[in-house]
């Protein structure tokens, strides 16, 4: 998932950085002081979830959960997922410096779009149907990520086109895994704490304080 430094064309890297800065600005706009602690905790949760590996045949994939992040955080998913990627790059060496923009856009943009599109469904439908919508959102976000990564590669030169196609194919099993996990997570949240899907990113603070 993490593209490394030096692989993409300069124009693609610059474009990714510009879109990422725009997305960050939009995401931060709604994050006032009241909401930052909740957003930080949720960002840390998604970081933790990305360390969970799901067996897939003889190997395994790790969770990304960007669709769920979009459902819970809305636009704030952009800075939240950016922070995760920044920390991974700086402290684990995953990804790189100049490609941080492209990587952020690839993960966070589909998260936000899917979140905005599916949140009304996830909030209003009966839990079992909400879970279905959540599954579609989880799988859809990964599909969006795959398309964006493939596009970034394909735009970087003809030599990268086969790799771009491989990216699309390789994401299909990831998509299925994420859809299943996201559906179950939505089902649980709807039953236990449905306020999480209300106004992001910290509905819990205003409501249901027992």
């Amino acid at each position: 998932m993490h593209i490394v430094d030096g692989a993409l064309a300069g124009e693609v890297v610059a474009g990714g950085a510009i879109v990422a800065v725009g997305g960050l600005a939009l995401g931060l706009r709604g994050l006032d002081l009241e909401r930052i602690p909740a957003a930080g905790l949720l960002s840390a949760t998604f970081f933790t979830a990305s360390l969970i590996h799901v067996p897939l045949g003889p190997s395994s994939v790790h969770l990304i959960m960007n669709g769920l992040a979009g459902l819970v955080l809305g636009w704030a998913a952009f800075p939240a997922l950016f922070v995760g990627l920044l920390l991974q790059a700086v402290f684990f060496g995953f990804g790189g410096v100049t490609v941080l923009g492209v990587n952020t856009v690839a993960i966070a943009l589909p998260a936000v779009l899917v979140g905005l599109a599916a949140r009304p469904l996830v909030r209003q439908l009966a839990p079992s149907h909400a879970a279905l919508a959540g599954g579609l959102a989880g799988g859809g976000a990964i599909a969006g990520t795959a398309v964006l990564v493939a596009t970034a590669l394909a735009l970087s030169g003809e030599a990268f086109v086969p790799a771009a196609k491989l990216v699309l194919v390789a994401h299909v099993p990831v998509m299925i895994v994420e859809a299943g996990v996201c559906a179950a997570a939505v089902l649980l949240i709807r039953k236990v704490k449905p306020e999480l899907f209300a106004t992001p990113p910290t509905p819990a603070v205003e409501t249901a304080r027992a």
Binding site: T45, I52, L63, V181, A185, V192, E195, A204
Partner: peptide, 21 residues
Amino acid sequence: TLATYGYLVGMLLVRAAERAE
């Protein structure tokens, strides 16, 4: 397995939200 991990992630989020309050 997918459902179980989904409940795990969901539970983590719920607890995180409560901790945030």
